[in-house]
Simulated scan of single mutants.
Amino acid sequence: MDYYKGNLASSDFAGVDHKMPFSFPYRQHAYSPFWQAPNSQANFCEEDYIITPYIAEFMNTLTNLIYLFYAYHGIKNNANRKDAILRNLPYLGIACVGIGSGVFHSTLKNYTQWGDDLSMLVATATVIHRVFTYDKSLNYTVIHGLTLFSAMTAFSIWHCVTDELFMHSVVFGVMIVIVRQKTRSVIKVRVTDPAVLKDVRLLAVFGAIFFASGFAIWNVDIMMCNTLTAWKRTIGLPWSFVLELHGWWHILTGLGAYIFIALVEYLTSEEAGQPLGSRFAWPVGYLISSSGKSSSSKINHKHAGINTNKAFEKVKGSSSVKHASGSNNVAGLFGVKDLKTA
């Protein structure tokens, strides 16, 4: 199943001139591919081998770095934890997505597409394993992991032998729904503080929005490929990179995947129920801190008011004591022992 017609530069748009200032025109024809002609089922809207002979889809390859960035951040944060191995499995999974997708988009070969497809399932399977075994015994965790691994291996072999895409999409969608439903149930059990619960739910909403936005942009890339390619050639390099919408799919799904992985890690750890704080990478940490400013500001103002009243009462009491003490001293000068009894 071809998603797009590849190498558009060599067919319909070779004569389009760029008009944007401070830009460079596209090549009239693609480079001779280092990896030979693409033979993958999926070929995306970015023109093949138009930037370099070594990378088929330049921006679609480069944007996969976001998966590696978030994987590195998560693994680094768990460096000194006793359960770092289990915590890091989902981050290793998302790193596999970045590597698999990057290799595929740089080569557009059939076998590298299999790696890209299967890495998505592996990453999701690690999250499923974590969210279903965090509170179980070691034996259950191992058996569940082996069962999941066997199922993924069997499906992967079948997927590569049949060279199909439909069932891959179905299985991936089902796995995402399973993670979503289980995560919702874990939130109800593990988070009881209303303020923290609000932040956790908001974080889940952000993740869903990123995923949905990425999917919508990808579909625009599918439906408007010819128009987008003409616009890119009119704009010229490097500004046209902004219109590589499949690259935005990588960025937005990378954000969404990281949010759900980090959220599952939080919910299945001893920190569950505590304020989210600044444990998340940018921009997720910024989104959470910004959303919590208004509520924390109200709390701070409330405490400030209480402290002000207490301080006023303290000062008032201190002034009364000083006044009484001063009056008694004056009375003493006139031979009166205590002004109160005088």
Score class of each variant (00 low, 15 high):
Ser327Pro: 01
Phe155Val: 08
Trp239Thr: 04
Gly273Gln: 05
Ala9Trp: 03
Val196Glu: 04
Asp116Cys: 00
Ser327Lys: 10
Ala204Pro: 01
Thr341Tyr: 15
Val103Ser: 02
Asp83Phe: 11
Ile235Val: 10
Ala208Leu: 15
Ile299Gly: 01
Phe166Tyr: 15
Asp48Asn: 15
Val161Asp: 12
Lys322Thr: 15
Glu313Asp: 07
Asn64His: 02
Phe210Ser: 01
Tyr72Trp: 14
Gly317Gln: 13
Tyr134Asp: 00
Ser11Asp: 10
Asn139Phe: 12
Asp338Phe: 07
Met224Gly: 08
Trp114Ile: 05
His323Gly: 00
Phe104Asp: 05
Gly236Lys: 01
Leu228Phe: 01
Leu8Gln: 12
Asn328Asp: 14
Asn77His: 02
Ile251Ser: 05
Val191Phe: 03
Thr124Phe: 03
Thr227Leu: 11
Met224Leu: 15
Gly6Ile: 09
Tyr4His: 11
Gly207His: 08
Val242Cys: 08
Asn307Thr: 03
His159Leu: 11
Met120His: 13
His303Ser: 05
His303Leu: 06
Ala42Glu: 08
Ala154Lys: 08
Thr147Lys: 03
Ile157Asp: 03
Ser11Leu: 12
Glu46Phe: 02
Met175Val: 03
Phe22Leu: 14
Pro90Ser: 02
Phe132Gly: 00
Thr133Gly: 04
Gly332Tyr: 14
Gly256Arg: 11
Ile187Phe: 07
Phe280Cys: 02
Ile66Ser: 05
Phe22Asp: 03
Phe13Leu: 11
Asn139His: 06
Glu271Trp: 04
Gly173Glu: 11
Ser320Glu: 13
Arg81Ser: 13
Ala125Glu: 07
Ile143Glu: 12
Ser289Lys: 06
Ile50Thr: 09
Met1Tyr: 03
Ile187Ala: 09
His73Ser: 12
Gly102Gln: 07
Val196Asn: 08
His18Glu: 09
Thr141Ile: 00
Asn328Pro: 03
Lys302His: 11
Tyr91Thr: 04
Val161His: 11
Asn309Ser: 09
Ser40His: 03
Val186Ile: 15
Tyr31Ala: 11
Ser101Gln: 00
Met1Asn: 06
Phe24Gln: 14
Val196Trp: 06
Ser319Lys: 12
Ala262Gly: 04
Thr192Gln: 05
Pro25Cys: 04
Tyr140Val: 15
Glu164Tyr: 12
Ala204Thr: 09
Met1His: 07
Leu121Phe: 06
Lys188Thr: 06
Ile51Asn: 01
Met20Arg: 06
Lys109Gly: 09
Glu271Val: 05
Glu47Pro: 04
Ala195Met: 10
Ala216Ile: 13
Asp193Phe: 06
Met167Tyr: 13
Ala281Gln: 01
Asn39Met: 05
Ala123Ile: 07
Leu255His: 14
Ala42His: 14
His29Cys: 01
Pro283Glu: 13
Lys136Val: 04
Lys19Asp: 05
Phe206Arg: 10
Val321Tyr: 08
Tyr258Pro: 01
Leu276Pro: 02
Ile288Asp: 07
His159Gln: 14
Trp218Phe: 14
Met120Arg: 03
Gly15Cys: 11
Trp248Val: 00
Ala154Asp: 09
Pro21Met: 07
Trp231Asn: 08
